[in-house]
Design a protein around this nucleic acid. Structure first.
Lengths: 241, 241
DNA sequence: CGCGATATTGATATAGATCAACTAATGTGG
DNA sequence: CCACATTAGTTGATCTATATCAATATCGCG
């Protein structure tokens, strides 16, 4: 099942078998996109949304001088631009960081499905407001944490999200981001990210080798980054209205 | 009409008279809240959402040491915590900055109304994803702009939003925020905000007097803050699906 | 009028940026 | 499979924007 990771670890259990099937039916056959490919540009009108099956993507905004600010890291199971369905025009770019497997949901199909399954509409709405909750935590991270805290917080968040979709083994996960990407996510320079990583490595809290990261001391990283996973809305299953 | 400013300047024209009436009916009678009153705390379960009729509110997250990061400034016509409807538990605090007039929408009433008016559901969804678009721009602002740019961008955004609901005359609007608030919105200290404001005042781009702000040179401020209003989704009225 | 809250200014400290090599990987065509 | 090119990572030296600390001035209100 293509969308098996959608809302996994959140309220997926509230989806009926019929609804899960309906999601599958609104998705096109999966396609593969090479790494570092931009699939949406700011200002673009969109008529379909992208579901990420495997790989990493990110959303970002470029400033006047081409400096880039990441807005989100997208991991398997994310409906990357579901907000494009109500918005119809996007205010940011989207690009692949690794080779990605995706399936598209044409907006007219979403509309058709939601007419038959109104409750599924609330679940999709829920997915977009969780996305906004992540944005809020990013604002906090950039506004109030120092360099080490930002990196730690970002890694804790990513690890927790990846764990929820089964992409973490023994605290380690694939990591296609280069240090420049980390810098663009945390509002730092790549030079400073490099120094922060060294510090975390030397403390024995982290291991970054090649294209993989191992979190060795999650507790300490979480303390450093003032991370708590409540804003991810994992694990709880109150009824979606 | 209590909710006359809801989605004003956006897709309000798509609301039928019946739908506008339905919104009115899901709102409780307006109440007044004194300035600097916290109405929601992080982690709190919510069973109603708050519509802001007049006054200013803000959402924020406190860090471990009580330092505060604003996540948003809420202006008249905002459905401040509509995302609480699908989320059911909030990940941030909400407080009034000035005396505010609000009306509450109990979630069970929203549910009832949406059953009768599915299209209204898409409009509410649209309102929450626009809110997320603002969050994204705040991430950009904090991650990529310097102090003066952040202040300028924030003021341009606020002025544009207030203008859309008719709260700006001759570039001037009420301003209950103290410099400490501006600092908490822009990730700076109040001392530095003070210096940036002086600079903008001396350049003749701005006039801050008492509890009012006048934007004297919007163009230059917008250039300084790399502001463009596209992410506010004003003025266009593509059909909400 | 007087007191607490807010704004302003100056002096000094510092986290992180910038600039500039240099090294280590990774990839590629012959 | 090697030679070379390209990309990514690392380190040191220096600079600068903003924080911090501290004092004073002004505002708004009871």
């Amino acid at each position: 099942m293509i969308s098996e990771h959608f809302l996994q670890g959140r309220r997926r259990s509230q989806l009926s078998d019929q609804e899960k099937l309906a999601i599958e039916e609104m998705l096109s056959p999966p396609v593969t996109i090479p790494r570092r490919t931009t699939i949406i540009r700011r200002g673009e009108e969109v008529s379909r949304s992208t579901f990420l099956i495997s790989g990493f993507m990110c959303r970002y905004i470029d400033d006047r001088n081409g400096f880039r600010q990441f807005l989100s890291l997208q991991t398997p199971g994310d409906f990357v631009d579901l907000h494009g369905y109500p918005l119809q025009r996007l205010d940011h770019e989207i690009t692949t960081l690794s080779e990605c497997r995706v399936a598209y949901a044409p907006h007219h199909k979403i509309t058709a499905v939601l007419e038959r399954f109104p409750h599924l509409g609330r679940m999709l709405w829920f997915a977009t407001v969780v996305d906004a909750a992540l944005h809020r935590e990013w604002i906090f991270r950039l506004g109030r944490l120092d360099a080490a805290g930002r990196v730690a917080h970002f890694l804790c968040e990513t690890c927790t999200r990846l764990a929820a979709v089964g992409c973490v083994t023994d605290g380690a996960f694939d990591w296609p981001l280069i240090q420049q990407d980390l810098a663009e996510a945390t509002g730092l320079t790549s030079v400073h990210v490099n120094r922060v990583l060294r510090q975390l490595r030397q403390s024995g809290w982290l291991d970054v080798s090649g294209r993989r990261i191992a979190i060795l001391d999650f507790e300490r990283l979480a303390a450093l980054g003032e991370f708590s996973d409540d804003y991810l809305y994992l694990g709880d299953t109150p009824q979606t209205p």
